Computed example of a mutant assay.
Amino acid sequence: MSKKEKVAFYTLGCKLNYAESSIIAGKMAGEGYDIVDFDEKPDIFIINTCSVTDFADRKNRKIIRKAKKINSDGKVIVIGCYAQLKPEEISEIEGVNLVLGAGEKFNIDKYLNSMPEEKFISCEIEDVSGFHSAYSSGDRTRSFLKIQTGCDYICTYCTIPKARGASRSGTSHDILADAGEIAEKGIKEIVLTGVNIGDYGKGIEEDIDFLGLLKKLDKVEGIERIRISSIEP
């Protein structure tokens, strides 16, 4: 990177997206990028999308077009559920430089260092595995702490399994470490976040369920309040 490029994030949708945007932004800041507000004419726009409804899809497209109006020379990178579900559709929107699916969004820096010729990189959702820890910080009085992602329930009205893959969890060791970091930042309230956190324990080699994790988190010094979100889809 020849100069300190400015990067802006715009996050739509659920608390899980906010947690993931925050951790990606922190990683990029650590690599020398300057994280700025969306309206500060950044060099790179990263739009973390939602795709729960047709309205959400329309809002995604509106934000993508807004980015090009702010800086016509800026790079636009689209990640999130919309990017996994409809990568070709997004890549055809004027001004989009890159679309990264569920398996690639945590490696944005790799693609920025060597921008690929193809505009979208997305694997089959069945091939997405592993768990990337994430929590939000710096923009709220509470932190969204990711403990689970994906869903194994195939409901006719819901696209989440196709967007995020199978249900999988973070280890209690990693989640407790994240909670400790949150407390060190002076944040006293965490919101446990996932697609269906009642499924916590799936995808890890650890004999623990959601209640067991709660009991461990209750012992983290500095965390005074724990909120629960999305305990069922």
Score class of each variant (00 low, 15 high):
I35L: 15
V36S: 04
F38D: 03
F38K: 14
F38R: 14
F38W: 15
P42A: 04
P42C: 05
D43W: 15
D43N: 12
D43L: 14
I44F: 08
I44N: 06
F45G: 08
I46T: 12
I47A: 03
I47R: 13
N48W: 11
N48Y: 09
T49H: 02
C50Y: 01
C50L: 02
C50E: 00
C50G: 01
S51F: 02
V52N: 00
T53F: 05
T53D: 00
F55D: 00
F55H: 01
F55A: 00
D57F: 05
R58L: 02
R58T: 04
K59S: 00
K59P: 00
N60T: 10
K62N: 12
K62D: 07
I63C: 03
I64H: 09
R65Y: 13
A67V: 12
K69D: 11
K69F: 08
K69M: 13
I70Y: 11
I70M: 09
N71R: 14
N71Q: 06
S72E: 10
S72C: 08
D73P: 07
G74N: 07
K75S: 05
K75H: 04
V76I: 15
V76K: 05
V78D: 01
V78C: 00
I79K: 02
C81V: 05
A83F: 06
Q84W: 03
Q84L: 03
L85Y: 10
L85D: 02
K86A: 04
E88D: 12
E88Y: 11
E89S: 05
S91Q: 07
S91D: 01
E92W: 07
E92I: 10
E92V: 09
E92H: 12
I93Y: 08
I93M: 06
I93H: 04
G95H: 10
G95Y: 13
V96S: 05
V96M: 06
V96H: 09
N97H: 10
N97I: 05
L98F: 09
L98T: 09
L98K: 07
V99R: 08
G101N: 03
A102W: 08
A102M: 09
A102H: 10
G103Y: 03
G103M: 04
K105I: 08
K105Q: 04
K105M: 09
F106H: 10
F106K: 12
N107P: 05
N107D: 11
K110I: 12
Y111I: 13
Y111G: 04
L112R: 11
M115T: 11
M115W: 12
P116T: 10
E117H: 13
E118K: 15
E118T: 15
K119L: 09
K119S: 06
K119P: 07
K119N: 06
F120S: 07
F120W: 13
F120A: 03
F120C: 05
I121Y: 11
S122N: 13
C123Q: 08
E124F: 04
I125W: 06
I125F: 09
I125C: 04
I125M: 06
D127A: 06
D127H: 10
V128F: 11
V128K: 08
S129V: 12
S129P: 00
S129I: 15
S129D: 02
F131L: 03
F131W: 02
F131T: 07
F131I: 13
S133C: 00
S133N: 12
